[in-house]
Amino acid sequence: MPDLNAKSPVWAMIVLSDVTSTRRMEQVRSDFVANVSHELRSPLSALLGFIETLQGPASSDPEASARFLSIMESEAQRMARLIDELLTLSKVEADEHITPDDVISVDQIISDVAGLLSVRAMAKGMKLRTLVEKDLPPITGDADELTQVFQNLLSNAINYGSEDTDIRLDIGLVENLPETGVPGIFVSVTNHGEGIPAQEIPRLTERFYRVDKGRSRSMGGTGLGLAIVKHIVARHRGHLEVKSEVHKETSFTVMLPRFDENIL
């Protein structure tokens, strides 16, 4: 007969899970929501303040009313830019695992972007100088997204460059991309100005990060331009490199894989 007084063994299972990455993602999401709320609240508060003023004493002062309406328009445009860039960033992040497959010419995109922004450069006494290697091969990519990349980079070069200086656009071949080792094409945008301190460079592509917050906002920056650049370059399986010397020059270099017909 079995011994009814005998104790059965007790088993226990311990499961250990590393939640570090989960906590990190939760913090990133929390910070993102807080930043978006702050960026939208500032212009919204300004708009509400000016509306209240226009409904009061300023309603009988045409000059003050015109000035306030101009500021309100500027703040509304800032909110619109922020929303547009949030939507762009969200789309690029969602599609980052899908490599674009259109065959395009980078030098043509650079020519179009330079033509589009040349008037802004001339307003600061700047000259855009483009140096393109001959017989560049095409790349595989998305023309609209790469246009956004180079518009953002060239726009920053104009905004943060010193007046009456040159902005250099260099386009050429690169033998091996850093991450993949495949041959590619590089595009460098170089300006002369205050430069970026070395300790700030690793954080430049973070969402809403600004080296000079006051100056960035006064120029209409949203703090998302370089984050968009980073994600578009990643989607193209490319590489982004930043070099800067304080009070000298700053270069942003985008490297992209060449078109390879054997991959199609």
Score class of each variant (00 low, 15 high):
139 I>L: 13
139 I>G: 02
140 T>G: 07
140 T>H: 08
140 T>K: 11
141 G>V: 09
141 G>P: 11
141 G>F: 07
141 G>S: 07
142 D>F: 03
142 D>W: 02
142 D>H: 03
143 A>G: 11
143 A>P: 09
143 A>N: 04
143 A>R: 09
143 A>Y: 03
144 D>R: 01
145 E>T: 02
145 E>A: 09
145 E>Q: 15
146 L>C: 13
147 T>R: 13
147 T>Y: 10
147 T>K: 12
149 V>D: 03
149 V>N: 06
149 V>A: 06
149 V>E: 04
150 F>C: 05
150 F>M: 04
150 F>G: 05
151 Q>D: 04
151 Q>A: 07
152 N>Y: 13
152 N>S: 14
152 N>W: 04
153 L>V: 06
154 L>F: 09
154 L>V: 04
154 L>C: 04
154 L>D: 04
155 S>R: 02
155 S>K: 06
155 S>V: 00
155 S>G: 12
155 S>F: 10
156 N>P: 07
157 A>S: 13
157 A>T: 03
158 I>H: 04
158 I>P: 04
159 N>V: 08
159 N>I: 13
159 N>D: 12
160 Y>L: 02
161 G>V: 07
161 G>T: 02
162 S>T: 00
163 E>A: 00
163 E>W: 00
163 E>S: 02
163 E>D: 00
164 D>S: 01
164 D>R: 06
164 D>V: 00
165 T>F: 01
165 T>A: 00
165 T>D: 01
166 D>K: 08
167 I>Q: 01
167 I>D: 04
168 R>S: 09
168 R>D: 11
169 L>M: 10
169 L>Q: 00
170 D>S: 00
171 I>H: 03
172 G>L: 00
173 L>F: 11
173 L>A: 14
174 V>Y: 02
174 V>S: 08
175 E>D: 14
175 E>Y: 03
175 E>M: 05
177 L>P: 08
177 L>W: 11
178 P>R: 14
178 P>S: 11
179 E>A: 08
180 T>P: 02
180 T>S: 15
181 G>F: 06
182 V>K: 12
182 V>F: 08
182 V>E: 11
183 P>E: 12
183 P>L: 10
183 P>Q: 05
184 G>C: 04
184 G>S: 07
185 I>H: 12
185 I>N: 07
185 I>A: 11
186 F>Y: 15
186 F>D: 07
187 V>D: 03
187 V>Q: 06
187 V>G: 02
187 V>K: 01
187 V>L: 05
188 S>L: 06
188 S>Q: 02
189 V>G: 00
190 T>C: 10
192 H>S: 12
194 E>P: 06
194 E>I: 09
194 E>H: 11
195 G>N: 09
195 G>P: 07
196 I>L: 12
196 I>Q: 06
196 I>F: 04
196 I>G: 00
199 Q>W: 10
200 E>Y: 08
201 I>M: 09
202 P>G: 12
202 P>H: 14
202 P>D: 14
202 P>S: 14
203 R>Y: 15
203 R>N: 15
204 L>K: 07
204 L>A: 08
204 L>Y: 11
205 T>C: 15
205 T>Y: 07
205 T>R: 13
205 T>A: 14
205 T>N: 13
206 E>F: 10
206 E>A: 14
206 E>T: 13
206 E>K: 15
207 R>D: 14
207 R>C: 15
208 F>C: 08
208 F>T: 07
208 F>M: 06
208 F>W: 10
209 Y>I: 08
